[in-house]
Structure formats: C-alpha cells, structure tokens
Design a protein around this nucleic acid. Structure first.
Lengths: 167, 167
DNA sequence: AATGATAGTCACTAAACCGGACAATCCTCA
DNA sequence: TGAGGATTGTCCGGTTTAGTGACTATCATT
C-alpha cells in the first residue's frame, strides 16, 4: 500500500511519496530562491558563503569539492561574490597557485540574513503540521536523506547538472 | 525550536526542514529521471503522457495550461513524443487550428512502465521508514504540499523555469 | 464582412553547465 | 638537482534548456 499510483484516479500521484517529495522540494527551493533574491544572492552563491562561514579560509578547489560544484564554474561564482564585496581572494602563502577565499564582514552579514530567512521558511513549512508532529517528521525526513546517501553539505541542485522532475 | 539553523554547528542545515525537503526532493527527482531515462523518456515528456492518460484527448494548449508548461515549448515536446510513437496529432473536428493529442498504444504502455518504476521508487523511499510511520509521513507531506498551494497535476520542475536550490 | 482573440509554429535569445586546453606552480623521485 | 607528472585557477567553445516575439491560420463576435 506504499506505492499506490495505479489504483484510484489515474494521473493521481497525490499519494506517491516520490512525487510529493520532489514536488514539495522543488517548491521549497523556489521559495527560498525567491526570498533571497532581493538580497542579490542566488542559492548557489549562498551555498558558498555558508560553507565559508563554517570553515575559513578555503581554496576554490576545496569549495568546489565540498559543494560538488565544477571547478570551472567556481571561477565566475567567486568572481561575482567578490564583486559583491562578500568575499576576497588572498594568495595562499603555502601554495602560490591557489587562492584562499575569505569571507568579508559584509559576507558574514549576508549569511546571517539568509539564515534568518531560512528560519522563517522553516516555520512556514512546519506551520502545516501540528507542533507535536514536527520533530518526528523532521527525523523521518532525515532518515530518508540518509538512506539516499545525501551528505548534509551537498545539495543536488547546487551541485552540477541536476535537473529532472516528477514524480 | 523549529528553525534551528543558527545554533549548533554552523553550515549545519541538517535539521532545517526547508533544506531537507529541497535536498531530498531534488535527489528524488534525479533518481526518477535516471530511472526512466533508459526508456527514452524525460520527466517533462512523461508528465504529458501521464496527463493524457488521465484525460484524452487534449489540445496542446490544454496540456500546456494543465501542466504549467509554456505553449511554445509544448510544440517540440509533442514533436518528440510523436517521433517516439507515443502520441499522435489529429486535427480537431471542432477547431481547425487545434490538434487533438491522442495517446497511442505504445504511449499507454510507457505510462504503465513508468508507473511501475514510480512504485518501486516509492518503496525505496519508504524503506527508510518503519511501516507504521509511512502513512502518517505521507499525510503530513500532503498537508505541507497543500499549504504550499501545490496542485497535484503541476510540478514546479515540469513547469517553467524553476531552478533554485538550498537551504 | 471586419475586428480582435486564439492555436500552433518558428527563430532568436539568455542562462547554465560541461569539457578541453593552457600557464603557473607544486610534488616526487631518480 | 632537475625532469616528469599532477594540481590550481582560468578561459573558451559547445550543448542543453527554457523563454520571447513574431507570424500564419483559424475562430468568434458584432
């Protein structure tokens, strides 16, 4: 009774976990992108800033590996971040090929602001559930994420070519 | 205690419903696309076939409206579907501008095959949960989908430009 | 019949991402 | 020590994907 897709109404994927998850996930990502857009930042760029907020400094290569983004794309991404004043390139003292990417004060501020938006988005999502349900739901969702071998730092959308859709 | 993102470890969005949902959703969509790819079909194309399976025939315009896909893009989508032999264009007797899109026998078969894949994907996802948890989880997910005003037929990824990513 | 709306089509554009190639630098080991 | 191979950041081109504008044929309304 798990995968009921054939029975009932055709075209009704309303009970399909796969469809629901990808649908809700896509919409959530849309909302997030729309909410941070006024700050002049994209989800991908924020992923970099956030990652730097956790560990600093990192080279472009380290960031690319950590987030699953292609090396080549990291170049222009850092360019934009630097142009926005959120990040600065410093030559590494250890390796003259590499740049150490440092978060600026403004960059740290953006991370804080976006984190606040994430909190409010979380509350908006959780609002559909009874307070008593929320912890269990998150725990179950986490278990699914683990079973899919998702690492907490890598988001399939942030990482390379990852389209696809329903269900 | 819903939106814990700031506390604990920075960069740790592991407890954020928004991040988890979009991450799991994106991965689910990826898996689905990968699983149907051997059949020579994309998620977008399947959405059309599946919709036709539920109501037939429909004009391109009706399909575009129903799935949230742009009219112009529907043209090449139907072209491919027709080239694959899953669909046929018949001139509408009522409106000589419009085409009625009809599912062929092969098209119906593909829908059946993909639906079977969806069932197995659902089982794979549900496998991370205890059997007793599954119904509640799906119900909660459905409530979240409703609170986001998601219609069961429209998938944000299938419909227009819908990138975005974390939290 | 005339005017405006609508269905489908096509061509052009914009964005995202990948792969290949390249210079500078590092590393290793004979 | 120095020569070959690997690595870092960079750039460029090609591909894919989706959206826009304009066009034709047809319908609907008056």
């Amino acid at each position: 009774m798990i995968g009921r897709v054939v029975g009932g109404d055709p075209k009704g994927y309303g009970g399909s976990m796969a469809f629901l998850l990808s649908q809700v996930g896509a919409r959530t990502a849309q909302l997030f992108a729309a909410q941070i857009a006024p700050l002049g930042i994209t989800p991908r760029a924020f992923a970099i800033l956030s990652n730097l907020g956790a560990r600093q400094p990192q080279t472009q290569q380290q960031l690319a590996d950590g987030l699953g983004i292609h090396r080549n794309n990291m170049v222009s991404l850092i360019d934009e971040l630097e142009a926005s004043g959120w990040v600065r390139r410093h030559r590494s003292p250890d390796d003259r090929r590499a740049f150490e990417i440092h978060l600026t004060t403004a960059g740290r501020e953006v991370v804080t602001q976006v984190n606040a938006l994430v909190v409010s988005l979380n509350e908006e999502l959780a609002g559909a559930l009874a307070p008593a349900e929320r912890a269990a739901f998150t725990s179950q969702l986490t278990r699914i994420a683990q079973s899919l071998e998702l690492e907490s730092a890598i988001h399939p959308h942030v990482a390379g070519r990852a389209h696809a859709s329903p269900p």
